[in-house]
């Protein structure tokens, strides 16, 4: 097994609050690694509503959600955060005094003195399509993500959906699969026009099948899919023989593995914390942003920023138990300005 990555702090979730936590930790000389299940930073802001406006960030009368994420990324650059994207943290284990092991679903391991859970509404996970009886086939012959293209070589593959994921995998798997069918409920696609054109070209060359309709039932045995029954938009019903199905119905937020980390959750979904440092019942593990709960909690980005600042003050004592923390302002502290890589202000 590979040696774990050793760091001061592991931040679970790279949404706006996880990103800003890097800043507050960085000012106090703590290095952070960020893990996020999405393939990009920004959390809900980037995944759900990148172009939507935000009006309640103090001092910024208006920004877009993606604009805020981009600005935060810029702001934390001096602290060189390490991103681990497309990975979900599965376990957080206390292995000693102020020492935690954090393990991802990709087998990556971290060893850190502090863990910060900034997981928002939980992890984004693929939506299960509305096909009755799909569960027994999941991860055996029905897959919501493609990890290894080669696994589909020569197979009869049915891809369902009309977005970028469905179209991208149609284009990528067409040369690999023995036979490929793309099934979508209507003739318009939300995927990028370029992908749609390439897909239509494959269809016109007879390299893939294209069906407009919805899968209504599945048949197979022992987890191995054999066929899907499809009802087309004009009402006809027929079967598509297949060895694998890849449904792409977007993402939904689920609490995910956080539920199994031993916290007494509030309303089964929120991690209770104290309001002095936003620390959980396990000392050294903090929860900030939408995922935490305390009396008076507001699910606002600005609340999460405040929580990140207080968290960092307490985390410092776990990372540097022998040091005394001197409170400083970025406006006047030359040492903080040095960390930020900005020249100290010239005083006339």
């Amino acid at each position: 097994m590979d040696e774990p990555i050793k760091t001061d702090v592991v931040i679970i979730g790279a949404g706006p609050i996880g990103l800003f936590a890097v800043f507050e930790l960085g000012l106090l000389d703590m290095k952070a690694h960020l893990v996020d299940i999405l393939d990009k930073v920004g959390g809900q802001c980037a995944e759900l509503y990148p172009e939507k406006p935000i009006y309640d960030i103090p001092g910024i009368p208006f920004t877009s959600a993606q604009g805020l994420v981009d600005a935060l990324k810029e702001q934390i650059k001096p602290f060189n955060p390490q991103y681990h994207l497309g990975e979900m943290v599965e376990t957080v284990t206390k292995v000693g005094d102020n020492l935690f092991r954090v393990k991802t679903d990709q087998g990556k391991e971290f060893e850190s003195k502090v863990v910060v859970i900034a997981a928002g509404g939980g992890s984004f996970q693929p939506k299960r399509p509305p096909i009755p009886g799909i569960e027994p086939y999941e991860n055996k012959s029905v897959f919501y993500a493609v990890r290894k293209i080669e696994a589909f070589r020569g197979q009869r593959v049915l891809i369902i959906g009309g977005g970028d994921s469905a179209l991208d995998w149609t284009l990528n798997l067409a040369p690999i699969a023995g036979h490929l069918t793309l099934l979508h409920r209507r003739s318009e696609f939300r995927a990028s026009p370029d992908s749609v054109n390439k897909m239509m070209a494959l269809f016109n060359e007879g390299k893939i099948d294209l069906v407009f309709g919805q899968a209504t039932s599945l048949a197979g045995d022992g987890g191995q899919i054999r066929k899907a029954v499809v009802k087309t938009t004009d009402g006809s019903v027929f079967e598509i023989a297949c060895d694998a199905i890849l449904p792409f119905f977007g993402l939904t937020m689920k609490l995910g593995p956080v539920a199994d980390w031993g916290f007494e959750l509030k309303n089964n979904e929120l991690i209770p914390v104290d309001t002095a440092a936003f620390e959980t019942s396990t000392l050294g593990i903090f929860a900030i942003g939408d995922i935490n709960w305390y009396p008076g909690k507001l699910k606002l980005i600005l609340s999460g920023f405040h929580e990140a600042a207080l968290m960092a003050q307490k985390a410092y004592h776990y990372v540097y138990p022998e040091k005394r923390l001197v409170f400083q302002y970025t406006t006047s502290s030359t040492s903080l300005q040095k960390k930020l890589g900005v020249a100290p202000a010239k005083v006339a």
């Binding site: 977005g163 979508h184 977007g250």
Partner: peptide, 9 residues
């Protein structure tokens, strides 16, 4: 576009 992702359309 978003309805593509809805359950039991």
């Amino acid at each position: 576009d978003m309805l593509d992702f809805a359950y039991a359309l």
